[in-house]
Nucleic acid binder design. Structure first.
Lengths: 220, 220
DNA sequence: ACCTGAACACCGTTCAAGT
DNA sequence: ACCTGAACACCGTTCAAGT
């Protein structure tokens, strides 16, 4: 992370510094005042270059996403490539825990990453319109999953969540009186393996559906 | 929204007041200080009853979700009921724009709402374990979609997003040189109808996949 | 046991002033 | 054109003090 005024301060330098703070402490750590002080500059010096807090965060996602390159195996079938794309994106973004906090309201920052996906679909003979719509579906599915996933606190013991979840499950009348589910699946919440499996499954169902042309049927 | 100290201040009264603020101004409007002043009380008076900000927000979601009842048509097939459940949840939550900001990190608050879904699956002959896993999938899919959807700013002209999106799309090399997509789908972003259709499609693919038993196949 | 007031360590942002 | 310092209107939370 850059310090002092060895360089004349511009949007890029600010973004680099803010991104460094983001990587360390997530969205909460990106503060105009903290970025400024890390750059050895007054908070107001930033405003000329990024406009305001919103613009600062725009610069952060932009830089974050520019570092992400998704390469697909062009020999593979398009369904395989679609799944590969989603898994690759998830892998990249899971390296930056707070990424979805930024991306959820800044879909434009992801567009560049969807290029290989759209390219794969076009190469497979999709019409331009269908390719864009299919890519949008896969993108939303992936972003949605990552967004929910990012709300799951697996780090630490997370006793609060687990407690509340257990209490909620215990109150579920449907399950009452039934042979209690294996304690493993009852109130335990989800772990890494569950989440990975859930993502793979969701993705598979979506891609298989596209493969079957279910997106071409007239909709209710 | 309740005012003054006509009642002796407890967790429920605080939650009711905070929820009222939430409905008006979203998550940003729910502030310990604002809730306190709306109740005609010092900020610190809340701490005895809700612990801290986190606990205050817990109380808000709890109350928010308790007001949501999802009724399914038990005559319908389980796939129909599953889709019905998701559409109903989306309809309820879309009435509270910031709801996903609270729910994303508080999955336990949604458990109660999944009861009719699990019940429908069990009634259709699902094993308890498969019912829970299928319900979890449908829940994550729905929450994920709503989470992304809530980041889409359709209100107002949202020029900033649209501009940035357009610029991102214009930079997509894949689309360059091609017969420009219909201006309608190029850079325009998405509108209400697109999003509704996308949700219906995603849901249909997931439910059709479950129907086909794709969740029972051995996973890679 | 419950509530208050003053205080602390933060925020984002405005504004007049400097160079 | 770029940056600073002081100030404003907020935050969540601690702590000693009141009843």
């Amino acid at each position: 992370m850059p310090r002092r005024s060895d360089r004349p301060l511009d949007r890029d330098l600010i973004a680099a510094c803010a991104l460094a703070l983001f990587r360390e402490g997530g969205l909460a750590a990106v503060t105009t005042r903290r970025v400024a002080s890390a750059l050895g500059v007054s908070p107001m010096a930033l405003y000329v270059h990024v406009g305001n807090k919103e613009g600062l965060l725009d610069a952060v996602v932009e830089r974050l996403m520019r570092a992400i390159k998704i390469d697909l195996d062009s020999e593979a079938s398009w369904p395989a490539q679609a799944e590969q794309w989603a898994h690759a994106l998830r892998a990249e973004l899971s390296a930056h825990p707070g990424a979805m906090d930024l991306l959820r309201t800044r879909r434009w920052a992801l567009v560049r990453c969807t290029e290989p996906l759209i390219r794969a679909l076009l190469a497979a003979g999709f019409s331009e319109e269908r390719a864009i719509r299919a890519a949008r579906l896969v993108t939303w599915v992936t972003m949605g999953f990552l967004s929910v996933e990012s709300g799951v606190d697996l780090l630490g013991s997370d006793d609060r969540q687990a407690d509340r979840l257990e209490r909620s499950l215990d109150r579920l009348e449907v399950l009452e009186g039934r042979a209690a589910t294996s304690p493993a699946s009852r109130g335990r919440g989800v772990d890494r393996a569950d989440i990975d499996a859930l993502f793979s499954l969701e993705l598979r169902l979506i891609v298989r559906g596209l493969e079957a042309g279910l997106d071409l049927e007239p909709h209710d």
